[in-house]
Computed example of a mutant assay.
Amino acid sequence: MLSLKLPRLFSINQVPKVFHEHSIIFGYRHPRSTATDCLFSLFQLTNETVNIWTHFLPTWYFLWNLLALSYTLDFWNEAYTWPFLVYMLSSCIYPFTSSCAHTFSSMSTRARHICFFFDYGALSLYSLGSATVYAAYIMPDRWINTPFHKWFTTIAVFNTIICTALSCYSRLGMPFINYNRSIVERSPELDHPNLSKVLRIVAFAYPYFFDNIPLFYRLFLCSGEGCAHNETVPIHYRHVALAFLTCFLFVTHLPERLAPGRFDYIGHSHQLFHICAIIGTHFQMEAIIMDMTLRHSWLSLHAPLPSFMGTIGALGFALVLNLLIIALFSLALYWTPKLPELRYEYLNEKFKADEDATPRFLTRLVKRPRVLKE
């Protein structure tokens, strides 16, 4: 009988620190996994499996919605639908890119950085997609044709550059030669993890808050006529609530920080973060479709039609810029010196004094074997 041997899993003390996840003790894949091993891990319960599937399956859900709507909306000839097309494309790109990043991030240290560079770039494109539809359909009536409305998408393109560059910098790895001639991986993420976390939060929070200025005004500040209050308001509230819950989970690392080792495979914050983000995107999509339909007549009379360069052209331009930024950061990983004797024995000694590597009550459960070669 044929049998399939799944790749072995490791504990936090058996992999280089760059692979460590906060309060996740077990379930790590080999830090030099092959592409085949990574694909096999899709069907093996690791600390990344649920992360992968919670974004891979929704990709097909959003793609199915895009294809279904293409039969009722004339994306080819009707300029009014172009912002929605940009949004749906970005909503398909970001979960697919994230699932690929989590799948292949264990192939090497450099591969891990590059995978998440693409993940950050996809998220920044999603923020641009959101800004594009918000400028076209969500903007309050009284803000239509104001300078803020006219420059909204242009500023959003600039924000994507900031988002991708800042988030990539927050995890850029650079080899460092110490006095013992040992080479270890150094980066803002390793040397200053709190600063790295703050940089990454700012990189994604800033575009989100900018994109949602029109929506926040409609929901929380606007009163009287010109606010575009309609049946979409309750759905917008759900999206906003889930967005803040997503941010809360990303920042706090709950619930795993309360019980390290208990939520390694199912239930840790990154999985919950993925689920909340996807459900929030679903409600956002539903609200946008309703606003696009309900406000069509009024917007057609009072607002200019979306232009190609302000929608599809802006997405293409931002895509090129993001790929350029990702390429520059990726090349920086290969421009740094690398000696053939690159090993992690130094890290193995460093783990002895690292209080964050394994909580005290788990040190008896987890033996500290030699750290794997990268």
Rank of each mutant, 00 (worst) to 15 (best):
H239F: 15
L258K: 13
G226V: 11
S182A: 15
V157S: 11
F176C: 07
G224N: 00
F209E: 09
H274L: 09
R262V: 12
I201P: 01
I235G: 01
F220H: 00
H192T: 13
P234C: 00
L242C: 02
F283T: 03
I161D: 08
I162A: 12
G261V: 08
T232N: 08
T246C: 06
F263W: 04
I177Q: 11
V233D: 11
A259R: 14
F273S: 02
T160P: 10
T153L: 05
F209L: 13
A228W: 08
F220Q: 07
L215A: 14
S182G: 14
F210I: 08
N212C: 12
T252W: 02
P234Q: 01
G224W: 01
F220I: 05
A259D: 13
I183P: 09
L242A: 05
P207H: 11
T154F: 10
G224L: 05
E256A: 05
T154A: 11
R200G: 10
D264P: 09
G173T: 10
Y206P: 05
L166W: 06
W151K: 11
Y169Q: 05
A165V: 08
L272N: 03
C222D: 07
F176P: 02
H270V: 09
P188T: 06
F248C: 13
C163H: 02
S223P: 06
C247D: 07
C168M: 10
F176T: 10
T160I: 14
N180F: 14
A205L: 12
L249V: 06
H274K: 08
G173Y: 04
T153I: 15
